[in-house]
Amino acid sequence: MKKIYYLLVCLMVACTLTTFNSCSSEEEEELIDETTINKYKTAIVGTWLRDGSKEYWRFDAMGSGSVAYGENWDADEDVHEGEGNQFQWYINSNGLMVIYKIGDAYEDPDPEAPFTIKSITSTKINWVTSDGYQQSLTKVK
C-alpha cells in the first residue's frame, strides 16, 4: 500500500506542476422528476434477483412514511430470506438510496448507492451504481 500511496502523491505533485487545469467543469447530474419517482416507488416493490448472481433484493411497500424497508441476501453464501441485510430505502431525485441496519440503527449506506434507476418494468429493473456499473434485476415474486 505504501507503494500505491507513494505513486498517488507523486502523481498529484506532477499534475500540479503541469499547470494543467482540468477542473473547468463537473459532471452533469441526472435528476429524475417527482412523477417518475412516484412511479418507481410503486413499481420497485417485490422480490428481485440480480442477474448473473444469487443476490436477492426485496423491497417492501412504502407505507405511510417517506422511507420503506426491505432486505437483500445472497443464496451463494447460504443466506436465506430473513437472514440477510435489512435496509431502509427511499427514492429521491438522485435515485434509489439504500441504508442498512446495524444494531438498532439504519446507518450503513449501500456502497453502490445511490442507484440511478434507468427503468422499472413489471419484470425488470435496470439501474446504474454510483460508481457507474449497469446492473439488471429480474422479479421473482
Partner: peptide, 27 residues
C-alpha cells in the same frame, strides 16, 4: 502551484498493484 482543481481516477485490483490505472479525470 496551479490555482485550480485537478482530478485523478485510480483503478485496479489491490492484489495486482503493478497494473493500476491512473488517469486524469474530473475533480
Amino acid at each position: 502551484l496551479v490555482g485550480g482543481h485537478l482530478g485523478l481516477d485510480i483503478k485496479g485490483n489491490l492484489d495486482d498493484v503493478d497494473n493500476i490505472s491512473f488517469k486524469l479525470g474530473s475533480c
